[in-house]
Design a protein around this nucleic acid. Structure first.
Lengths: 340, 340
DNA sequence: CTGAAAGCGCTTACAG
DNA sequence: CTGAAAGCGCTTACAG
């Protein structure tokens, strides 16, 4: 049915070994045979069977990309970044979404093993070294952690300077004269969230502002949860005059509720978001945000993985990328200028 | 290194054939042996090698998903829909992005053949039956077309009622009293775009409004192009009083320029978009939009593919899903109510 | 009901 | 420099 290497060999009048050598750029093949083989490949429209190659050769040209929420624009850009580098190298990417479900993550990691991927880029949704994660290490399958990491599990990692990003965001609000700055955070079991929370606290402390526990609301990274939390916050006897929201989906939730409650942003509440989105400037209240180099994170993750595949024994590396404060109007910076 | 079927067979004291049968739910295996095998699998943490299975068996548990723009929220939801069904069936998804590049699409389709996928879900970016597409058919590889289709290439297809959606959008603007309704469209070589354009024309004709070619601006589906086109449109001597924008990224571009030009939406220009986004209601001008059931499109595509795998000879089917008009404020409906 | 053996499409020492 | 042959980890007729 499908054209196989045998067909090519017959057509070119050589052995299968020679065809294989041509395909793998083995320099020992004569120029003449090489030409004949390539010609036959062209004519027959032959495409080598990667499943067969993977079985025999000790190398694989598929990598696994496991993310925790495909609906999140952050991960979409990340996927794009990984895809770009993979396409250049003729590497296929097997994509799986865990939907922030640790059980699903286990399944997916086992699936990746079953597929004989060369390595895995993982945005973990479970923050202890699970069996399925350890099993990968035992099997010698390289894992690159991206965005989030797993305490106690050594691996190449690419992350963003979450602490500094959060610190910068809050510092910005303080500089604009805000005094009661609330934080809406995702699950503090996630190391990333924890770092952002530390950045928030640090900025407040440095400015001599009190750490009011009532101003910190912990949710689950989803839009819904941010809606309840924002509502609670603004209904309280002493509502905040500013909010730092720890990710993009939660920001959309917060914004939605503020609008429903007819609370003016930034006049009544200033807002800075961690995570920027392509359309952040087109929102009802154009967002001031800490932008992450999401595509670059994808690139770096691929580079780390390629490096580890080439040098399996090299020591683990953590790449920390900088964030950037993008000032638009939700923080009230413009307001402030006019005041002076 | 890795545990193989042989190891399991030895551990359970049975032949490899028996292990294989257990794995494939062959009912002929005794309950006792089945138990012993499953136990050994559990203990050894065995995960069958899918590459090997794919090579031998005439069945594959990977499908290819080829989309044309991963940055587009529309495709993100679609991917999510495909993933959901795939996960249920323990099918892996190989994702590739063609970036609207026909050359890249050829490469990707060849890659899919090389990976021995069971079938492909494709949002084409080339609208003639290319060699790589025909080659799939020759190889007996099922292709399901989604969102867009390829004239002259017969295949299972899932699409949306583009004509009716566009017609409804424009009709809505007409009902609100708009007279000079412009359309910003993506490349009219794309069948989907063409249908939407037909819907636009049809609504105007029906209402006895003139078809002014100056009001139809053709771009390339990207945000940038919509920006230039909107600018041109509004700078003209006789600008429109309404716009129908044919996809979500172009809508963001149009909105951006309108704001920069300080043109009030909907007072000066009403706007309806084809495609809704989760945050459409949070935009500077909350969007009235034709919403597509994107996740459902992903589900249907998977169902069509599964059906074809089960019944390769069945006749081709086209599933057409309905769109929905979501009225928010960019169309000026609210304005209108107040007038009365 | 179970096992021994052939074979899927490749790659890679091993000869020559 | 090239080819014959073994083998990667499975599945599946074929015997028994």
């Amino acid at each position: 049915m499908t054209t196989t290497m045998k067909d090519v060999a017959m057509h070119a009048g050589v052995s299968m070994a020679t065809v294989s050598r041509v395909l793998n750029h083995d320099p020992t093949v004569t120029e003449e045979l090489r030409k004949r083989v390539l010609e036959s490949i062209e004519i027959l429209g032959y495409e080598p069977n990667r499943a067969a190659r993977r079985l025999r050769a000790n190398s694989s040209d598929v990598i696994g990309l496991v993310i925790s929420d495909i609906k999140n624009p952050f991960f979409v850009s990340l996927i794009g970044g990984v895809e770009q580098i993979a396409a250049q190298r003729h590497i296929s990417v097997l994509l799986c979404n865990t939907d922030e479900n640790p059980e699903r993550q286990n399944q997916v990691l086992n699936l990746m093993r079953a597929e004989q991927v060369a390595g895995i880029i993982l945005a973990p949704t479970s923050f202890t070294p699970t069996d399925s994660l350890q099993m990968l290490k035992m099997a010698g399958l390289p894992v690159v952690l991206v965005d989030r990491w797993v305490p106690g599990f050594e691996a190449d990692t690419v992350q963003v300077d979450n602490f500094k990003g959060a610190y910068t965001a809050v510092r910005h609000l303080i500089n604009l004269g805000r005094q009661r700055i609330a934080m809406i955070t995702g699950d503090l079991a996630i190391p990333t969230s924890l770092e952002r929370h530390r950045g928030y606290q640090s900025a407040l402390l440095e400015a001599g502002l009190p750490l009011d526990p009532a101003l910190v609301k912990e949710g689950n990274s989803q839009q819904n949860s941010a809606q309840w939390l924002t509502h609670d916050l603004m209904e309280s006897a002493t509502p905040p005059d500013a909010m730092f929201v720890a990710n993009n989906l939660m920001t959309l939730g917060a914004l939605k509720v503020l609008r429903e409650m007819k609370i003016r942003v930034p006049e009544q509440v200033a807002l800075v978001s961690f995570d920027d989105m392509p359309w952040s400037g087109d929102l009802y209240s154009p967002l001031t945000a800490i932008s992450q180099p999401t595509e670059e994170m994808g690139h770096e993750a691929m580079y780390l993985l390629l490096r580890r595949l080439a040098e399996p024994q090299s020591s683990f590396r953590t790449v920390v990328l900088p964030t950037q404060l993008i000032v638009r109007s939700s923080c009230g910076a413009h307001l402030h200028e006019e005041q002076h």
